[in-house]
């Protein structure tokens, strides 16, 4: 199989899930629910959700693939928006640069939060799930204490909220993807990520520095949550601080895209796979709306989809094993019968 056909095959396999899911739901909603799924306004919504959930799933993927579960992603989104947004609000800069400045500020604050939770992780050396609970509480409380708990209100500042226009959001997404693909595939950090992910003991023994690698992963996750925050504020115009760990609900729409991304990593690149996964989830949530499912039914369907996918992904090596087992069995039977003659 020549190199070019292999690349073609990989591209087809990477994009296949998105096309299949989109067509499947297009069919279902037109048959059972109201029409309007996936066209015009709803296509813009699917685009927005893909970018918004895509950023969250990318952020979660940089830690979860190496076994580090992070409860603080939601609180980082909120805190980076509140701090970055309010600072950007005060600085008046001519028209298009205001919005860009806000993105830069929010992402920088997000990376700072990521650095802090990364340092907490390597200094305390506790299971990441446990540390991230404490970190999430601290970030939430800071977000609540600042700007006397009003969060960020930009609904009067349309000039800053230009990022939901499809072309702007795709520019943002493309920019982020290029940087991430470069980081994951063409830098030492990327190679270390992959070796630490599956062979932590051997990689560390050989001398790969796990501490810096995990802190960089946390910084990237924080920055990505900043981008997700930009999409959130551009869509809703306002964000209120949260308390009592309720920010961990932001994570719910990160699981499905991340696991689809992991499954597609072999064929192209994990980051692209995650975005394809985010597109599939966006189709699912929009389709459910057109099928008239209530919000709680949405959570149930989304949750069930994640669990089914997880079961498939964690057990499909068994199918291959089973097939190999059956072949070996025939071969062995063949041999014993030959030995008997």
């Amino acid at each position: 199989m020549s190199k070019s056909t292999r690349i073609l095959k990989n591209i087809v396999i990477t994009l296949a899930p998105a096309v299949i899911v989109y067509l499947f739901f297009l069919l279902i909603t037109n048959l059972f629910g109201e029409p309007g799924f996936g066209v015009g306004d709803n296509l813009r919504v699917i685009g927005y959700n893909m970018v918004y959930s895509g950023f969250i799933a990318l952020a979660v993927s940089y830690n979860l693939t190496s076994g580090r579960f992070d409860f603080s992603v939601g609180s980082v989104l909120i805190l980076s928006l509140i701090v970055g947004g309010n600072i950007a609000k005060e600085i008046d800069v001519p028209e298009p640069f205001g919005a860009v400045l806000m993105v830069v500020l929010v992402v920088l604050v997000g990376m700072l939060c990521g650095l802090i939770s990364g340092l907490f992780y390597i200094l305390l050396r506790l299971p990441p799930m446990v540390t991230s609970l404490g970190v999430a509480m601290i970030f939430e409380a800071i977000g609540f204490a600042l700007f006397d708990s009003e969060g960020l209100r930009l609904y009067t500042r349309q000039d800053l909220l230009i990022w939901t226009k499809p072309q702007n959001s795709f520019i943002l997404l493309a920019l982020v993807l290029i940087v991430l693909i470069y980081l994951l595939n063409f830098t030492k950090f990327g190679y270390n990520c992959r070796s630490l992910q599956t062979g932590q003991k051997n990689a560390v023994e050989v001398g790969v520095n796990e501490k810096t690698n995990s802190v960089v992963c946390y910084i990237i996750a924080g920055g990505l949550m900043g981008f997700a925050g930009i999409m959130y504020i551009s869509q809703n115009g306002i964000i209120a601080p949260q308390t009592g760990l309720s920010s961990s609900s932001f994570m719910m729409n990160a699981f499905l895209p991340m696991f689809i991304g992991n499954a597609l990593a072999k064929y192209s690149d994990r980051n692209i796979g995650v975005i394809v996964g985010a597109f599939c989830q966006a189709c699912l949530s929009s389709a459910l709306v057109y099928l008239g499912a209530g919000p709680s039914m949405q959570t149930v369907m989304n949750g069930v989809a994640v669990m089914l996918f997880l079961i498939y992904v964690s057990n499909n090596y068994k199918f291959a094993l089973h097939r190999a087992w059956r072949e070996k069995k025939e071969k062995a039977l063949g041999m014993t019968s030959a030995a008997k003659q």
């Binding site: 063409f186 030492k188 190679y191 599956t198 051997n202 050989v206």
Partner: peptide, 26 residues
């Protein structure tokens, strides 16, 4: 002694991938 899940090439140059950096890209 090898790390599973990655290519043979990366196994051979585990921890020294920096050697193949040409103007910023490995």
């Amino acid at each position: 002694g090898y790390v599973s899940g990655i290519s043979i090439a990366q196994n051979i140059f585990l921890g020294e991938e920096g050697r193949f950096r040409r103007h910023g890209i490995i």
